[in-house]
Design a protein around this nucleic acid. Structure first.
Length: 652
RNA sequence: GCCCACGUAGCUCAGUAGGUAGAGCACAUCCUUGGUAAGGAUGAGGUCACCGGUUCAAAUCCGGUCGUGGGCUCCA
């Protein structure tokens, strides 16, 4: 038959190994670098027979994205082989490729030690050196069950029962055989660059009720150079860890004595927060939101009424006042609804958009706390939008646009997900259906791609989640838009329609940054601590060469402060080099050096944190330079920068 | 909450055949007035996370508690 191989038409025989067909159209070097092949949408082993209906055949090279997945998955098998050889009593479970690497979960009586990992790695190296063939074969369900049962691999039996198929493919290399859909690299020699990274506990099938297995993580690449680049990248990422930078830049701290997941914001960190809050308040007012404020604790009955007591109690803190039970708020919606309810609303009033920087407390499990990214006390930039059903679509789009404007302003890429009804939830099926549709329609209107997370919604409604990544490419949920037909019902929220009747409004819960704590954590890593000028706690520092310039330096500092710039003067009896180094390590965007020459000219010598120095200029001009740099990120989206709280002038 | 690892000055870290602790930075005092990433001297600073055990003797060995880190589950 005639098929297209790598762009050219060739004559091939159906049933011949794909690898053989490919080999004729590829250079030796290319073929050596081929891990599997693609026929239409399907990926096939090089040893697989060429299907009858195959019209095009392409090689998948080791360094392509698909190729790397194959290598990583194959590396997981290689690791399982090594583990079984060293520890025959281990039971194998599953081992997929993941972003940048792979893992395999093992059932083993004891924990793997770092020494074990070294041994396993050495055993894998031997297997790579031996360049063993990966061979594919098939078994019927009964054969497969009997085969793995005979080896005591009970987890494989469970997987077979679960899949419920008639035929199963198995892969063998050396002495190791595993149930696997494949495909795999043709020979172990293609797994050239890998490293085992860590061992961790993981539950069988991801369910904490199940047995905890030992998971070994590893990374694998097409060649040693790529591997080194990745390991270097990991090192680099550690340097921008927000916990490390938080200490170095004196932004925040976490004290054991205060409690886990509680943040102490130091002056500079608190200032960055205040700037963000200030920016957000103005931006919300511009977009038709109203600022409101509720208390931290509300009576327990209210949480019972809302459903939080039944559905969210394990995450809440409670207290008692005058023998009356109170709940510390984990969310801000109740106060907002009561504000809505404080008077009768007309359809003309809608949509109503209430915004609050609301401090919430959630009892997160101790093991999940993580710097600023997962805490127990945090501030949400929370809003609740109450609207008529016919306004819902437009309101969701408005929020999505708001999210887009803000994320683009910070330079974050983001991904969207829609989460549907969870098991533990309240409300009718129709309402859930309507709400989910509204969210999907809005994202379609925005032209955003999104994934669906079945059963991941909040207990009161479906939601859109926006996910951004930290320095280690870990994904964090920030913005979320949640549709809610249920709470307005429970709290009997109404508006009077054009017809004079009472109607039920729809409520949207939404945050943009999510929590200020988490967002700042990701932001610190995103900018490696070098905040953009508008957010930098100190925007400019005047550095004197000797104390002969102290008076002039003070004058420059005062001028900058009067122009709304957060400026300091470093008048200490230290050498200029020392002051420059310190300012640089504090990542202050502008250093304004003044010596005798500058005093005489009424100028400053501008040194910029990020590279080329603008040089000497009148200090009034330097102020304009700094102000325009501060405004720069706001060019898009019709936003603007101004910050009214003056940083306290500091005279050292 | 679960699995594994770790917990020494404000910070970063040394400190193994168990013998009542060290360095650099930061801090204080003094000297130095010096043009773009660290000038010099002196000094102060530690219940070696906490509790208990083994021992003549524990930062070091054992047990527990708390905390942190990497994951799992969960989440903004």
């Amino acid at each position: 038959m005639q098929i297209e191989v790598n762009g050219q038409m060739v004559e091939a025989k159906a049933g011949a190994p794909c690898g053989d067909v490919l080999q004729e159209s590829l250079s030796k070097k290319q073929f050596k670098n081929t891990v599997v092949c693609r026929c239409g949408d399907a990926l096939l082993d090089l040893t697989s027979p060429l299907p009858e209906d195959c019209r095009t055949l392409e090689p998948v090279f080791a360094d392509s994205e698909e190729g790397l997945d194959i290598i990583r998955h194959s590396a997981a098998h290689l690791m399982a082989e090594a583990v079984k050889k060293l520890f025959p009593e281990v039971k194998v479970t599953i081992g997929p490729a993941i972003e940048n690497g792979f893992y395999y979960d093992f059932d083993f009586e004891r924990a793997f030690t770092p020494e074990d990992l070294e041994q396993i790695e050495a055993e894998m190296e031997r297997s790579v050196g031996a360049d063993k063939l990966f061979s594919r074969s098939e078994m019927s369900r009964d054969e497969a069950k009997a085969f793995f049962a005979a080896q005591g691999e009970t987890y494989k039996g469970e997987i077979i029962d679960d899949l419920g198929a008639e035929r199963y493919s198995i892969y063998k290399h050396g002495e190791f055989t595993d149930l696997c859909r494949g495909p795999h690299v043709p020979r172990t020699g293609l797994i050239k660059a890998f490293k085992l990274l860590s061992v961790a506990g993981a539950y069988w099938r991801g369910d904490e009720k199940n047995k905890q297995l030992q998971r070994i993580y590893g990374t694998a690449w097409a060649n040693p150079k790529q591997l080194k680049q990745y390991l270097d990248r990991l090192e680099e990422a550690k340097k921008r860890d927000h916990r490390k930078l938080g200490t170095q830049l004196d932004l925040f701290s976490i004290h054991e004595d205060v409690g886990g997941g509680m943040i102490l914001w130091h002056p500079k960190g608190a200032l960055v927060r205040a700037i963000l809050e200030d920016f957000e308040k103005k931006e919300h007012l511009k977009r038709g939101y109203q600022l409101v404020q509720g208390p931290l604790i509300l009576k327990r009955e209210l949480w019972e009424k809302s459903g939080h007591y039944d559905n969210y109690r394990e995450n809440m803190y409670f207290t008692e006042i005058d023998e009356q039970a109170y709940g510390i708020k984990p969310m801000n919606c109740l106060a907002h609804m009561l504000i809505y309810k404080s008077r009768l609303r007309s359809y003309r009033d809608l949509p109503i958009r209430y915004f609050e920087h609301g401090i919430v407390h959630r009892h997160e499990k101790s093991g999940v706390l993580h710097g600023l990214l997962r805490v127990r006390s945090f501030t949400q930039d929370d809003a609740h939008l109450l609207c008529r059903p016919d306004q819902l679509q437009q309101e969701i789009i408005g929020v999505a646009q708001f999210v887009k404007d803000v994320m683009e302003m910070f330079g974050f890429d983001f991904e969207a997900e829609i989460s549907t009804r969870p098991e533990k939830s309240i409300g009718s099926d129709e309402d859930w259906e309507r709400a989910t549709e509204a969210l999907k329609n809005a994202l379609d209107a925005m032209g955003w791609a999104y994934d669906i997370n079945e059963g991941d919604g909040a207990f009161y409604g479906p939601k859109i989640d926006i996910i951004i990544k930290d320095a280690l490419a870990r994904r964090w949920q920030c913005a979320t838009i949640q549709c809610d037909f249920t709470l307005p019902d429970r709290f009997d929220l109404v508006y009077v329609g054009e017809d004079g009747e009472r109607h039920r409004p729809v409520m949207l819960h939404r945050v943009i940054l999510g929590s200020l704590e988490r967002f700042l954590g990701v932001l610190i890593e995103h900018f490696a601590g070098a905040f953009p000028v508008w957010l930098a706690p100190v925007q400019a520092r005047v550095l004197t060469v000797t104390d002969a310039q102290n008076e002039f330096a003070g004058k420059v500092r005062d001028y900058l402060v009067s122009r709304g710039i957060r400026a300091e003067a470093d008048l200490r009896n230290e050498k200029l080099g020392y002051k420059v180094r310190e300012a640089q390590m504090e990542k202050i965007p502008y250093m304004l050096v003044v010596g005798d020459k500058e005093v005489e000219a009424g100028a400053v010598n501008v040194r910029w944190r990020d590279g080329d120095d603008p040089g000497m200029m009148a200090y009034e001009d330097a102020a304009e330079l700094i102000l325009s740099a501060a405004c720069e990120p706001f060019q898009r989206g019709g936003m603007s920068y101004s910050f009214s709280t003056t940083g306290s002038p500091h005279t050292a």
